[in-house]
């Protein structure tokens, strides 16, 4: 990562334990502003925990700085938009209301019309403006994901942390979402970190990678450097072909799981 260290998010010596079991130990990394960083690693590697810790929702040892300032966890929630993985919702709030909640701190008894217009424009950015009046429990999981993304960007955050934002989306919407997020990073100069499993998709949209394994940072860098056959075998326990695609963006073709029943069959 070549960005100046004062711009973006810096994580220093972050450690978290649940019931004396370490989930993250001494994690240090930099997330550059204006760029998308993909956070990858197997289930249980600590991706979600790391995102929650950076957002300030999860208390942790260590320090997090935003644009060079040391920000305590409670204050971080004002600058960081964190989007949890879970998209289930039993709420019958309307889509427009959900987006408006992104500006929770500024909402009063009366809503200024331009705020509503702005919220509708944000929905339009994700192609779901037509859903504005629908309730959250009446739309699909994928559509809910888009609405939550619109809410996250509506907050005008300095840092956007997304936990598997494309998990519930169809192929086209995966591309739309990652494109919008990447553009937001570029235009608004915000820090974007995305935890995701689809390595090929991540390589296409992310400027850099952080590979987590067993609660620590295994590697950081550009996709082409980080996603190697050996590392995928070591971190994920898979045998894969790494194909250099267009603009030398790596494509991962997963062949088999090493040492599993699938391997023996």
């Amino acid at each position: 990562m070549v960005n100046a260290p004062s711009v973006g998010v810096e994580v220093h010596g972050l450690s978290i334990s649940y019931d004396a079991r370490p989930v993250l130990s001494d994690v240090s990394l930099t997330l550059a502003a204006g760029a998308v960083t993909a956070l990858v690693g197997p289930n249980g590697a600590g991706k979600s925990t790391l995102l929650r810790a950076i957002s300030g929702l999860q208390t942790a040892e260590g320090a997090v700085t935003i644009n060079g300032r040391n920000v305590d966890p409670a204050a971080r929630l004002g600058e960081v938009a964190y989007m949890p993985q879970d998209t289930s919702a039993a709420s019958s709030l309307t889509v427009l209301e959900v987006v408006l909640l992104g500006r929770l701190r500024t909402l009063g008894l009366r809503l200024p019309p331009d705020l509503i217009t702005e919220a509708e424009a944000m929905l339009d950015r994700f192609g779901v403006a037509a859903l504005a009046g629908r309730t959250l429990d009446a739309i699909s999981g994928g559509q809910r994901q888009l609405v939550y993304l619109a809410q996250a960007l509506f907050r005008r955050p300095k840092v956007l942390l997304l936990d598997e934002p494309t998990a519930a989306l169809d192929l086209r919407h995966q591309l739309v979402v990652l494109h919008v997020v990447r553009e937001a990073a570029r235009q608004d100069g915000i820090v974007v970190a995305i935890a995701m499993h689809d390595l090929s998709l991540a390589a296409r949209f992310a400027h850099s990678f952080v590979v987590l394994s067993r609660g620590g940072v295994e590697a950081t860098g550009a996709g082409a450097d980080v996603l190697t056959k050996d590392r995928l075998a070591r971190v994920y326990g898979i045998e894969a072909e790494v194909i250099s695609g267009e603009d030398s963006v790596p494509w991962i073709a997963v062949l088999r799981a090493i040492g599993s029943d699938i391997d023996r069959s």
């Binding site: 957002s55 929702l57 929630l77 004002g78 938009a81 964190y82 989007m83 949890p84 879970d86 919702a89 709420s91 709030l93 209301e97 959900v98 909640l101 992104g102 929770l104 701190r105 909402l107 008894l109 939550y148 907050r155």
Partner: peptide
């Protein structure tokens, strides 16, 4: 009132919104 409305999105999301 808006914070109470935000609770309808679940504790985790409400907390992430600063509630």
């Amino acid at each position: 009132l808006w914070r109470l409305t935000a609770l309808r999105l679940g504790d985790d999301r409400a907390a992430a919104l600063g509630v």
